[in-house]
């Protein structure tokens, strides 16, 4: 092979790859892909629970929130755990008055995954969660986690207190 032929071969290769790069640059971009997180809100409802509420053992907690997404909702989870060690604070800027730190004896652990019917952009969740009568009283975190179908997640954390 002479130099010229090799040069032209390489130039052709470079040009071909440059072309392929440019051509596939925009062709397969999917503008419809979901780039937004879902939202946990109180739109048109009175949401519950909210920060600093006090509940009593044996009662129920009304769960009432609106979940929305720009494309399609996924699933949600409610998790309640103790905050006896004051390990975190809620996702809102409110500071509730907290009991003294203590060691859990029989703390309430609640952890439930919930499905949302497919194809929805808006979903209203409303039901009661019974509070067991034999759990430790004190400060708890009520965590709401919500996904959309694309895998984006929103977290909402509420600080509540369980009393006698």
């Amino acid at each position: 092979m002479n130099n010229k032929r090799i040069m032209s071969l390489i130039t052709a290769l470079i040009a071909a790859s440059a072309l392929s790069i440019v051509s596939c640059g925009d062709s397969d971009d999917d503008d419809s892909k979901d780039m937004q997180q879902p939202v946990i809100s109180n739109k048109d409802i009175v949401e519950n629970p909210i920060d600093c509420q006090v509940y009593h053992r044996g009662e129920t907690i009304l769960f009432h929130y609106i979940m929305t997404d720009n494309q399609e909702l996924g699933a949600y989870n409610i998790e309640i755990h103790n905050n006896f060690d004051h390990h975190t604070h809620s996702t809102t800027s409110v500071d509730c008055e907290m009991d003294a730190k203590k060691t859990p004896q029989h703390p309430w652990v609640y952890n439930q995954d919930y499905a949302i019917p497919s194809g929805l952009r808006s979903y209203e969740a409303k039901f009661d969660i019974p509070i067991p009568a034999d759990i430790d009283t004190g400060d708890y975190h009520f965590m709401i986690r919500l996904t959309d179908k694309a895998g984006w997640q929103q977290i909402h954390s509420v600080a509540i207190k369980i009393a006698e």
Binding site: I21, G74, A75, D113, T147, A150, Q153
Partner: peptide
């Protein structure tokens, strides 16, 4: 120019297991 026919990807799903995504 690089192509993977089977890139191993840790995909975030919509599903919850034991309280976590």
């Amino acid at each position: 120019l690089n192509y993977f026919p089977n890139y191993i990807y840790l995909n975030p799903t919509a599903q919850y297991v034991e309280g976590l995504q």
